Amino acid sequence: MKLVLLPGTADWADRLMADVPGLTVLTPTPEALRTADAAYGVLPAELLAATTRLRWLQAQQAGPPPGFYYPELVAHPLIVTNMRATYTDHVAEHTLALILSLTRGLPRYLQDQARAEWNPDWDPASVVPLSEATALVIGVGAVGAEIGRLLSAFGTTVIGVDARRAEAPGFSAVHPAETLNTQLAAADLVILTVPHTPDTEGMVDARFLKQCRRSAFFVNVGRGPTVRLDDLDAALAAGELRGAALDVYEIEPLPADHPLWHRPNVVLTPHVAGAGPHADERRYAVLVENCRRFVAGQDLINVVDKTQWF
């Protein structure tokens, strides 16, 4: 079996061939693409057109970058697999940090710290106790499920909405995706973890946000194109949300002149929720396992529904 390591991927050629008997790893030359059975990385349309035997593409990420899926790739008979669940713990812990910063009022204290100002706020209403809150997790995949499990340890009532999953540890209920609009009004925390797909692009817009409680916090650690940033900013400006925290953005980097940078009730991190130790080794573990399975003619793990991009 011949695997092409596409540009921008780790140099794992020697290691893979040592770990997977029967595997030959190629650099992405025109001849290699013509004879390759599999590829790892991002495969643009012009490279896909140069292949003749390709049957499997392993993505480098759980949610590949915009443009990874395109009509020719979706129509092609090759199987796509991804890196889901390789940094679940990192993203879930980052999400809890964002949530706690909002519910404990840390944004204002960080602003005070930058000005060396001492302004304690003892108003009980300035804090949202997680033990009395209801969290709605939209997308109960590996990351969403772990966020819900961690929140439940604080005594938070956790409900979920997911197109594929019916239950998860720590959740009081997981509802079908079509019930989302009826669940929003119950949530003090609205946490978005869904992948970017044709169905989720722009799902959080002005209409969505008007269905949330005015006292709710909104958090997005899924994919940036799912949230219309201008609509989110307008909702915050109008007092339709209590605050928000984002790690991913409709446009990345977030433009320096975007008003979200300066909202006092917003926490922004630059798409780093997945940062943490062991990421490369975890990705390698998925790749080598799928290489072994592919050589042996076995079913692959982390197979993607290409029409849905996840």
Score class of each variant (00 low, 15 high):
35 T>V: 14
35 T>C: 08
36 A>S: 06
37 D>N: 12
37 D>I: 14
37 D>Q: 15
37 D>A: 08
37 D>E: 09
39 A>E: 10
39 A>K: 05
40 Y>E: 01
40 Y>S: 05
41 G>C: 03
41 G>D: 10
42 V>R: 11
42 V>C: 08
42 V>H: 14
43 L>G: 01
43 L>V: 04
43 L>Y: 13
43 L>R: 04
44 P>T: 02
44 P>G: 02
46 E>M: 12
47 L>V: 13
48 L>R: 11
48 L>F: 13
49 A>V: 07
50 A>W: 09
50 A>Y: 14
50 A>N: 04
51 T>C: 11
52 T>N: 13
52 T>P: 06
53 R>V: 10
53 R>W: 10
54 L>E: 02
55 R>T: 14
55 R>E: 15
55 R>P: 03
55 R>C: 10
56 W>D: 05
56 W>G: 05
57 L>H: 08
57 L>G: 00
57 L>Q: 12
57 L>K: 13
58 Q>E: 08
59 A>C: 05
59 A>D: 03
60 Q>Y: 11
60 Q>L: 15
60 Q>C: 15
61 Q>I: 12
62 A>M: 03
62 A>W: 00
62 A>Q: 01
62 A>G: 05
63 G>S: 15
63 G>R: 00
63 G>P: 01
63 G>A: 06
63 G>V: 13
64 P>V: 04
65 P>N: 15
65 P>I: 06
65 P>Y: 14
65 P>E: 15
65 P>R: 13
66 P>Q: 10
66 P>C: 14
67 G>S: 04
67 G>I: 11
68 F>A: 09
68 F>T: 04
68 F>N: 01
68 F>V: 11
68 F>Q: 10
69 Y>M: 06
70 Y>R: 10
70 Y>L: 05
71 P>D: 10
71 P>E: 06
72 E>A: 15
72 E>V: 09
73 L>C: 03
73 L>A: 00
74 V>W: 11
74 V>E: 07
76 H>D: 04
77 P>L: 14
77 P>V: 07
78 L>W: 07
78 L>A: 09
78 L>S: 09
80 V>C: 05
80 V>R: 00
80 V>W: 00
81 T>Q: 00
81 T>H: 01
81 T>K: 01
82 N>D: 15
82 N>A: 02
82 N>L: 02
84 R>A: 08
84 R>S: 12
85 A>T: 03
85 A>E: 11
85 A>F: 04
86 T>K: 03
87 Y>L: 10
88 T>E: 07
88 T>V: 06
89 D>H: 11
90 H>S: 14
90 H>F: 13
91 V>T: 03
93 E>V: 03
93 E>F: 01
94 H>C: 02
94 H>S: 09
94 H>A: 09
95 T>I: 06
95 T>N: 02
96 L>W: 12
97 A>W: 12
97 A>P: 12
97 A>E: 13
97 A>Q: 10
97 A>N: 15
97 A>M: 14
98 L>W: 05
99 I>Q: 13
99 I>P: 01
99 I>E: 02
99 I>R: 04
